Amino acid sequence: DCSRLFDNDLPDGWEERRTASGRIQYLNHITRTTQWERPTRPASEYSSP
């Protein structure tokens, strides 16, 4: 389970979450994917897998 964190500095379409182990990951709501690196572009600029 991940708990949500609120971060207004993220590009549109992204959400920051913390894993059960405390690591931060980023959820792309457009492609429904996650990544460990902080995003720098809006989620819509990433392609679906």
Rank of each mutant, 00 (worst) to 15 (best):
D1A: 01
D1I: 08
D1S: 00
D1C: 02
D1N: 14
D1E: 02
C2H: 05
C2Y: 14
C2G: 03
C2V: 07
C2E: 05
C2I: 11
C2P: 12
C2L: 05
C2K: 13
C2T: 13
S3P: 12
S3M: 15
S3K: 13
S3D: 14
S3G: 12
S3V: 14
S3N: 13
S3H: 11
R4M: 10
R4Y: 15
R4V: 13
R4E: 15
R4F: 15
R4D: 15
R4P: 15
R4Q: 11
L5R: 10
L5M: 12
F6W: 06
F6V: 10
F6E: 15
F6Y: 08
F6K: 14
F6D: 14
F6N: 12
D7I: 14
D7H: 03
D7G: 10
D7S: 06
D7L: 05
D7F: 05
D7Y: 07
D7K: 11
D7W: 04
N8V: 07
N8G: 12
N8W: 06
N8I: 03
N8E: 06
D9H: 09
D9T: 14
D9I: 15
D9M: 05
D9G: 10
D9A: 13
D9C: 06
L10N: 01
L10Y: 02
L10D: 00
L10F: 01
L10V: 05
L10Q: 01
L10G: 01
L10P: 00
P11Y: 05
P11V: 02
P11D: 02
P11W: 01
P11R: 03
D12R: 12
D12H: 13
D12S: 13
G13A: 02
G13Q: 03
G13P: 00
G13W: 01
G13Y: 04
G13L: 00
W14K: 03
W14R: 01
W14C: 00
W14G: 03
W14P: 08
W14H: 06
E15P: 01
E15R: 04
E15Y: 03
E15A: 10
E16Y: 01
E16L: 09
E16Q: 09
E16V: 10
E16M: 15
E16P: 11
E16T: 09
R17Y: 13
R17G: 07
R17F: 08
R17S: 11
R17L: 10
R18S: 11
R18K: 08
R18T: 08
R18D: 04
R18V: 12
R18Y: 05
T19E: 13
T19Y: 01
T19Q: 08
T19N: 08
A20G: 12
A20C: 10
A20M: 05
A20T: 13
A20V: 12
A20H: 06
S21E: 15
S21N: 08
S21R: 09
S21F: 03
G22Q: 01
G22H: 00
G22E: 05
G22L: 01
G22N: 05
R23D: 12
R23H: 04
R23W: 04
R23A: 08
R23T: 14
R23Y: 02
I24C: 08
I24E: 03
I24D: 05
I24F: 03
I24P: 07
I24K: 11
I24V: 10
Q25L: 06
Q25S: 06
Y26M: 00
Y26G: 03
Y26K: 00
Y26C: 01
Y26R: 00
Y26D: 04
Y26A: 01
L27Q: 02
L27W: 12
L27F: 08
L27P: 01
L27I: 06
L27E: 12
N28P: 00
N28F: 00
N28M: 00
N28T: 00
N28R: 00
N28S: 04
H29S: 14
H29P: 10
H29N: 06
H29K: 14
H29M: 12
H29E: 08
H29G: 12
H29Y: 06
H29I: 11
I30F: 07
I30T: 08
I30A: 07
I30Y: 06
I30W: 03
T31P: 01
T31H: 09
T31M: 06
T31N: 14
T31A: 11
T31W: 04
T31I: 03
R32V: 09
R32I: 01
R32F: 08
R32Y: 11
R32G: 15
T33G: 14
T33V: 12
T33N: 13
T33A: 14
T33E: 14
T33H: 13
T34A: 04
T34Y: 06
T34D: 01
T34E: 07
T34H: 09
T34R: 05
T34C: 09
T34I: 02
T34V: 08
Q35L: 06
Q35A: 03
Q35C: 09
Q35P: 00
Q35S: 11
Q35I: 04
Q35W: 03
Q35H: 07
Q35N: 00
W36V: 10
W36H: 14
W36A: 07
W36T: 15
W36E: 15
E37I: 02
E37K: 08
E37T: 02
E37P: 01
E37W: 05
E37R: 02
R38Y: 05
R38E: 03
R38Q: 03
R38I: 04
R38A: 04
R38M: 03
R38N: 03
R38L: 03
R38K: 03
R38T: 00
R38S: 03
P39T: 01
P39Q: 01
P39M: 00
P39A: 00
P39N: 04
P39F: 00
P39Y: 02
T40L: 12
T40E: 14
T40V: 13
T40W: 05
T40R: 13
T40Q: 13
T40P: 09
R41S: 15
R41I: 15
R41A: 15
R41T: 15
R41G: 15
R41K: 15
P42S: 11
P42Q: 08
P42N: 08
P42W: 03
P42I: 07
A43W: 07
A43S: 07
A43L: 07
A43F: 01
A43K: 13
S44M: 14
S44I: 09
S44H: 15
S44P: 02
S44Y: 09
S44C: 13
S44F: 12
E45H: 10
E45S: 06
E45R: 04
E45Y: 07
E45F: 08
E45D: 10
Y46I: 10
Y46F: 13
Y46S: 15
Y46W: 09
Y46Q: 10
Y46D: 12
S47W: 05
S47E: 03
S47C: 09
S47H: 04
S48Y: 06
S48I: 10
S48E: 10
S48L: 08
S48P: 15
S48T: 12
S48G: 12
S48V: 14
S48F: 07
P49T: 00
P49S: 14
